[in-house]
Amino acid sequence: MKKPFDLNAEYQPEHFKFSEKYQKLADKAIALYPKGKQQSAVMPLLDLAQRQVAEEGAKATPVYGGWIPRAAMDHIAEVLDMHKVKVYEVASFYSMYNTAPVGQYLVQFCTTTPCWLCGSSDIVNACKNHLGIDLGETTKDGKFTLMEVECLGACVNAPMIQINDDYYEDLTAASVVEVLEVLAQGLKPQIGSQTGRKSSMSSAGPTTLKEEAKKAKVV
């Protein structure tokens, strides 16, 4: 579940401005929509704000992850000429917008039925024990936040987690800790299936179109 947020909290920075790089991307997003309908760009702009904060957070000590401060939402409301409250509504609705500070790596566990049947509880517990924090909490060094979410649509490769933009699938209690350890060292673990299977192919290897699979060199 999304972290509860408070727009009057102390952690809210006073100002927000798009950096040059993100301003260009924002202009591009706004230009996609007809004049007078620029409000449609609210979602891409919120995403850009979150990414900019993540970039800044990676360089800060302690590190932090991408989230959208109130100042950013106010700034976006101004840029798009819409009411502030409408931006807050959008930001609070979607689970992928973080409206409160998170760790550099936001670990989202899918615990919906297919993942749960395949042992997502073990995955969650392994991470909790490894990091020493509970769901909804952030490690002291600011690196990890754990979060429980609903189905992320990768049920074939259950159990799975999402960390920032990437999926890590076919996990076991051991492999998920490995992923976290690699991330903690500042390296990039292998994304996708941790057992080496290709996308969502059957775990026992291809069952149909075997010739084509060979030709494509996926087995």
Binding site: K2, L7, V85, Y88, E89, S92, F93
Partner: peptide
């Protein structure tokens, strides 16, 4: 006034 959050958590409120 706005409607915040979603699903069961949806609620009416003022933003600040």
């Amino acid at each position: 006034l706005g409607q915040f959050n979603r699903g069961e958590d949806a609620e009416i409120g003022t933003y600040i």
